[in-house]
């Protein structure tokens, strides 16, 4: 793909790098984990040292190993949930926006109901009905989370489809005889891509939060390692009260970091959709060098008179 190039925005680069590291950990985490996370023979409650970079738990388990191995479960479930929820929201959102009429009313009611249902209690109920063997299956848990997380994306996609539906290029496609489904996914779909990506990233973020919450409450199988179960064990052993920051802190920081990476990528997508945020295509460095105002005024294309070294790009 000759059009694929590294994004110019620093935010996006940092976000992509962060997400890349997490994906890498997901793949290689279990191999680079120094110890078996279930092994309880180490010194108990040890603070970080060269042997145990993130210390040990009250049971004498290595925290770093738990963190690295727990990455996979968290990421896999969240990504499955994110993708499934996005697929549901595409089908429901685009169809309801494009078809309109009674179908739209029905589908809108459906997504409003799912928006209004408090997600977590529903998840807890659904989760408790899962057969015991299925509670560790990432696909099943991912689907359950997706079921509560698709409605927001569907609303956004419906709104955008509504605005695209009456554009001339859609009519032009109808004139040449395109079928309805083709118009929805072949003509309108690609125009939804930026919003779709942003919706996907937020849904993944939502899934990370929800999965961790479920695990923290002890509602998933607590013997599989993920950041939520780590927090569950830390909490049930009063790690916070005992001042064992190396046990409580890392899982929380990991969750915050993945959230930050996803949000940074989303900023980049915002700039891509709305080029005005990109300061009229002029980078901050060039703007400063040429003495142009820091914030471009809406509707005005910045004109830089002073030619500088940085300006000749």
């Amino acid at each position: 793909m000759k059009h694929l190039q590294l994004p110019k925005s620093l935010k996006v680069r940092v976000g992509l790098a962060g997400l890349g590291i997490f994906i890498l950990l997901t793949i290689i985490g279990p191999w680079i984990a120094p110890y078996d996370p279930n092994y309880t023979g180490f010194a108990q409650n040890a603070s970080p040292s060269w042997n145990h970079l993130l210390g040990t738990t009250i049971q004498g388990q290595d925290v770093l190993s738990q963190l690295l191995i727990g990455c996979r479960s968290t990421m896999v479930v969240s990504f499955i949930a994110g993708f499934l929820a996005t697929i549901i929201s595409i089908v429901i959102g685009v169809a309801s926006g494009y078809v309109g009429g009674k179908a739209d009313e029905g589908l809108s009611v459906l997504s409003n109901v799912f928006l209004a249902i408090p997600g977590l209690p529903l998840l807890i109920v659904l989760n408790s009905y899962l057969p015991a063997g299925q509670q560790t299956n990432p696909l099943v848990i991912g689907s359950v989370i997706a079921l509560t997380g698709w409605a927001w994306g569907a609303r956004v996609l419906r709104a955008q489809t509504l605005s695209l539906r009456d554009r001339d290029f859609v009519e032009a496609a109808r004139i040449i005889g395109e079928k309805r489904v083709r118009i929805m996914f072949g003509e309108i779909g690609p125009n939804l891509l930026p919003i779709l990506t942003s919706s996907l990233l937020f849904t993944i973020l939502y899934a990370v939060g929800v999965y961790t919450t479920l695990a923290f409450l002890g509602l998933t199988n607590v013997s599989t390692w993920n950041w939520g179960t780590m927090l569950y064990w830390a909490q049930s052993n009063n790690a916070g009260l005992a001042g064992e920051w190396w046990w409580v802190g890392p899982p929380g920081i990991m969750i915050a970091l993945i959230g930050t990476s996803l949000a940074l990528i989303n900023f980049g997508i915002d700039e891509f959709i709305n080029p005005r945020l990109r300061a009229g295509g002029v980078s901050a460095k060039i703007r400063r060098a040429s003495g142009a105002p820091r914030r471009p005024r809406l509707g005005l294309t910045p004109v830089l008179h002073k030619s500088t070294e940085a300006g000749s790009r």
Partner: peptide, 18 residues
């Protein structure tokens, strides 16, 4: 459709931008 075709007014809007 193959016999009767319509050309729309606004050439910029009638092409899918992506």
């Amino acid at each position: 459709a193959s016999q009767v075709q319509l050309v729309l007014q606004d050439p910029f809007a009638a092409m899918n931008p992506v």
